[in-house]
């Protein structure tokens, strides 16, 4: 019997392995991803489910034992809340301004960097540096060393010109915040546009030259259309990140003066962690997430058409 065993199990084993293999293979692929997936669910999905649950409750931490179900009341409040509307408008304005200005500056710098000159590598590194600084640090840096009315560099320069000192953060809060965001995001836009410029065929530019186009005409008629997908990509990615701006506002203005620089993330933070109104803040959060998903899915679809066209071109 023992001698017979091997020949029997021999052919049987591979058959068994074959039957199990598609499943096994699938698990071999899933397994390394599972920890990340579980982690993602724990830190994002479970809190979100709780948030949805809280959003149907009236629950203020200041008044213990006041927690009770209120149905859609919190949501109704969101849409009648004028502070929410203001925050939304601030959010849109801030993001649009920062993205637009940093894109224009980024294109300008990229065009300058696209030509050879001694020290180009150093200049490029220096220009990228602001993007590598933590937003919190950037906010603090600008608030103190740059814009402080007493010892800030900008006011020092203004005084040299004979102008009166300006308390930028208090007198022009929106402009100050946007300046910092632009300072941080211009390098990002520059890098994307630079990649676009360097992917442009030199022969096309030469053809335009032979066809009689000057430098400006070539840029407008040939280079900008070529850069369009890159500009779209930069605007899109920039907007996705800038919509979530919190650190800079927290560091520089705390959403003020008044509500001048309160955007949605900061407003949410105020309701939840300064007002302790968990129910209302949860409803706000859910509405914001829904809105973001809506905008992001439209944006992502756009993003994929950008990739599709570059692929077709290649």
């Amino acid at each position: 019997m023992a001698t017979l065993a091997p020949p029997v199990s021999g052919p049987a084993m591979p058959a068994a392995r074959q039957a199990a293999s598609p499943r096994r293979e699938a698990w071999q692929r899933r397994l390394p991803l599972t920890p990340a997936l579980i982690f993602m669910i724990i830190v994002t999905q479970i809190p979100f489910v709780f948030t949805v649950i809280f959003s149907f409750q009236s629950w203020n931490l200041v008044r213990p034992h006041s927690q009770h179900w209120v149905g859609l009341e919190n949501y109704a409040n969101v849409f009648t809340d004028s502070a929410f509307r203001d925050a939304l408008l601030t959010e849109i304005g801030m993001t649009a301004l920062a993205v637009a200005i940093s894109m224009v500056l980024g294109i300008g710098l990229a065009v300058l960097l696209d030509r050879r000159f001694p020290g180009r590598g150093v200049v490029r590194t220096l220009l990228i540096a602001p993007f590598l600084i933590m937003p919190t640090v950037a906010g603090l840096l600008w608030k103190t060393t740059m814009l402080d009315p007493v010892y800030g560099i900008v006011n020092y320069l203004l005084r040299l010109c004979g102008a009166a000192p300006v308390d930028f953060v208090n007198q022009h809060p929106m402009a100050s915040i946007v300046t910092v965001l632009v300072w941080q995001w211009t390098p990002f836009m520059m890098l994307i546009v630079l990649a676009g410029l360097q992917s442009q065929s030199n022969e096309v530019l030469e053809a335009a030259k032979v066809d009689g186009a000057g430098a400006w005409t070539t840029f407008r008629a040939i280079t900008v259309p070529h850069l369009r997908p890159y500009i779209e990509l930069g605007v899109l990615l920039g907007a996705i990140y800038l919509v979530n701006t919190f650190d800079v506002i927290y560091m520089m203005t705390q959403g003020g003066p008044g509500t001048a620089t309160t955007n949605l993330p900061y407003y949410l933070y105020q309701r939840a962690f300064l007002g302790f109104d968990v129910g209302q803040a949860s409803a706000l959060g859910v509405v914001t997430v829904a809105g973001t998903i809506l905008v992001a899915s439209v944006a992502l679809r756009m993003l994929f058409t950008v990739f599709a066209t570059t692929e077709r071109r290649a």
Binding site: E206, A207, V210
Partner: peptide, 27 residues
């Protein structure tokens, strides 16, 4: 180049990718 009254055909053709054939020719 533009004042030399010449026309050049490039190895890669160097067509303007975002323009139609007619726009390319009429540029």
């Amino acid at each position: 180049p533009r004042d030399r009254d010449i026309a050049m055909v490039f190895q890669s053709y160097a067509l303007y990718p975002h323009m139609t054939v007619a726009q390319n020719m009429g540029f």
